[in-house]
């Protein structure tokens, strides 16, 4: 069978780990780009587009690297546009519909607060290319975090309506954050190889960033429930199919064409 098919049959943990790192920014970038031309104020159109561009940039570097590691000739586009839903390793949090501006900024906040210790941890990766990507992505994540946190506070502590919406957003998104810190064999293997960091090792830092901001916004974290999403294992929500249908349509409709 082909090398790619062989890899899918028995996935290499290193590549699996890289795809997890790549797919979440890819899908979140896709979601944020839906805001273009529809933001509450022109200045935010630019800010959201900037964040989307950064995330898509991270995804491109990581996908290219994963494809090179795999050695089966798959480039960033083949990975982005020709994998099936089950093969995507993004966390479920990022594929959820944007909802209103409150939900969008809160998700950016929760996700970038996770990326911060993640990229910091990966600066020491034995995978030199990954370490380099982490260094660049860290600066971007810092900026995303600052901007999103400022919005969470302003909306949480703004008007009654904005508070209500932020509260609803937190209720909706919070359960999907558990997945970020749930460990499994892929992460254990990556950490053991000195290539990656486990999600569970990031949780304390994440809470230290997130909880004070929520408090300042007049919000409190919901209680943890047994719910655990499984996007990074390839088992997504109903939203992913629609997202991928839209994202992949051109490459599926015109197989083999160059753009």
């Amino acid at each position: 069978m082909s090398r790619a098919a062989a890899n899918r049959a028995k996935p290499d943990p290193h590549i699996e780990y890289l795809l997890r790192l790549a797919d979440s920014p890819l899908i979140l970038g896709q979601r944020l780009s839906e805001w273009c031309g529809h933001a509450p104020v022109l200045e935010e159109d630019l800010a959201l587009a900037n964040t989307a561009l950064d995330l898509i940039g991270q995804a491109r570097l990581l996908l290219t690297h994963a494809g090179a590691q795999e050695g089966a000739g798959r480039d960033e586009d083949q990975l982005a546009f020709l994998r099936s839903e089950r093969e995507f390793r993004s966390c479920t949090l990022v594929e959820l519909p944007n909802g209103d501006f409150a939900r969008t900024v809160l998700r950016n906040f929760l996700f970038s607060a996770y990326q911060l210790p993640l990229w910091e941890g990966l600066l020491a990766s034995r995978d030199a290319q990954l370490a380099a990507i982490a260094a660049k992505s860290l600066k971007e994540a810092r900026y995303h975090l600052r901007h999103a946190a400022d919005w969470v506070v302003r909306l949480g502590a703004g008007t009654e309506e904005s508070h209500r919406r932020m509260h609803a957003a937190l209720d909706y998104l919070w359960p999907f954050t558990a997945e970020l810190f749930a460990g499994d064999a892929v992460e254990e293997a990556a950490a053991a190889a000195g290539v990656g960091v486990t999600g569970s090792s990031l949780q304390t830092r994440w809470e230290a960033t997130v909880l004070p901001v929520l408090q300042e916004a007049g919000l409190s974290a919901p209680a943890r429930t047994p719910f655990l999403s499984q996007g990074k294992l390839g088992v997504h929500s109903e939203h992913m199919g629609h997202l991928l249908a839209e994202m992949q349509t051109m490459q599926r409709a015109y197989p083999g064409a160059r753009w």
């Binding site: 839906e34 273009c36 587009a49 900037n50 561009l53 898509i56 995804a59 839209e246 051109m250 490459q251």
Partner: peptide
């Protein structure tokens, strides 16, 4: 933007619209 056929074209279009 959401249907751009490659990641490079997606990024370019997003930057242009921005």
């Amino acid at each position: 933007i959401t249907r751009a056929p490659t990641l490079k074209r997606k990024a370019i279009l997003l930057a242009k619209v921005q």
